[in-house]
Computed example of a mutant assay.
Amino acid sequence: MTRRDALRYVAAASALAGMGAAAAGAGAPAASAAAPTLIDFAMRQIPAEDIRAAGHAGVINYVSTSRPGSSFGAKPITLPYAQSLTAAGLVIVSNFQYGKPGGTAPSDFTRGYAGGVADARTAWQLHTAAGGGQSAPIFFTIDEDIDRDTWNRVALQWFRGINSVIGVQRTGIYAGINPCQWAGADGVLGRSSTPGRWWAWQTKAWSGTQVHPAAVLYQRVVSTASNPGPVVGGIEVDVNDVLAQDCGQWNLHP
């Protein structure tokens, strides 16, 4: 093992330990060499034992409902499912996405400040109904490549609407590297207890080869029709590296 690999292993072990007492107490699943991983998915709820067997530390799950014309079994996360994950020693992080580009509902951020208010209210109600921590963040999604002008005119106003409901400290973002940077610089994201980290969940899409140094999660595998992700519990999933001991998991934010 090289010195670099050794340092990565130590960092991964430290991050997994920071996933919280529930994971440690139940015997958390083994992490990958690079980092502990969380999976995200929408099609249906994946049994906790399948997630553990695949070696993942937990899930990023939706606190939003399905768009018109669709019916995703994992949207929103439910209290019984959340309890089954927790009982298995798996951690949970909340994210919100209702619309999408070209979908039956437009991208959420396009609805501006008023849309942010409405989305934050929905997200918080579903998050708390499922047992989400009162101080845990919710990651709100920008699922397309946007430029700085669109950020300034539209998306930033959406985030300010979100902030007005749940507060800056409980607000996170899912996006490519640029919106993650802009959101942090514009003061609409909360901060992890891990020094130097914001509630930024960065996808590799629209990010080139860069990973923002303040991100707490990095979506390394994005499952698509042409490039499917690994199969867990019978469905293809996205895979996310945990970059900080505190990535917004519920059990660290009661």
Score class of each variant (00 low, 15 high):
residue 2 T to V: 01
residue 4 R to Q: 14
residue 7 L to V: 11
residue 9 Y to L: 15
residue 10 V to T: 01
residue 33 A to T: 03
residue 33 A to K: 13
residue 34 A to Q: 14
residue 35 A to D: 13
residue 36 P to N: 03
residue 36 P to W: 00
residue 38 L to Q: 04
residue 40 D to Q: 09
residue 43 M to G: 00
residue 44 R to Y: 05
residue 45 Q to M: 09
residue 45 Q to W: 06
residue 49 E to Y: 10
residue 49 E to K: 15
residue 55 G to T: 05
residue 57 A to V: 02
residue 58 G to E: 08
residue 59 V to N: 04
residue 60 I to R: 10
residue 62 Y to L: 07
residue 63 V to Y: 09
residue 64 S to F: 10
residue 65 T to L: 13
residue 66 S to F: 05
residue 67 R to P: 02
residue 68 P to S: 06
residue 75 K to L: 06
residue 75 K to V: 02
residue 84 S to K: 14
residue 87 A to D: 11
residue 88 A to Y: 05
residue 89 G to H: 11
residue 89 G to L: 11
residue 90 L to P: 08
residue 91 V to I: 15
residue 92 I to Y: 02
residue 93 V to Q: 01
residue 98 Y to S: 02
residue 98 Y to P: 00
residue 100 K to C: 13
residue 108 D to T: 08
residue 109 F to Y: 15
residue 110 T to A: 14
residue 111 R to Q: 15
residue 114 A to K: 10
residue 116 G to K: 10
residue 118 A to Q: 13
residue 127 H to F: 07
residue 130 A to I: 07
residue 141 T to D: 03
residue 144 E to A: 14
residue 145 D to P: 00
residue 152 N to K: 08
residue 153 R to S: 05
residue 157 Q to I: 02
residue 157 Q to T: 07
residue 157 Q to G: 01
residue 158 W to K: 12
residue 163 N to T: 07
residue 166 I to C: 00
residue 167 G to Y: 13
residue 168 V to G: 04
residue 171 T to E: 02
residue 174 Y to K: 04
residue 177 I to H: 08
residue 180 C to S: 10
residue 180 C to F: 08
residue 180 C to H: 10
residue 180 C to G: 10
residue 180 C to I: 07
residue 182 W to M: 07
residue 185 A to D: 13
residue 187 G to F: 11
residue 195 P to S: 09
residue 195 P to E: 01
residue 196 G to R: 09
residue 199 W to Q: 03
residue 200 A to V: 05
residue 206 W to I: 05
residue 208 G to Q: 11
residue 210 Q to R: 14
residue 211 V to F: 06
residue 217 L to G: 08
residue 218 Y to M: 10
residue 229 G to W: 11
residue 230 P to Y: 10
residue 232 V to N: 01
residue 234 G to D: 10
residue 236 E to M: 04
residue 242 V to A: 02
residue 246 D to F: 06
residue 246 D to Q: 11
residue 249 Q to I: 09
residue 250 W to L: 03
residue 251 N to R: 01
residue 253 H to I: 04
residue 254 P to T: 03
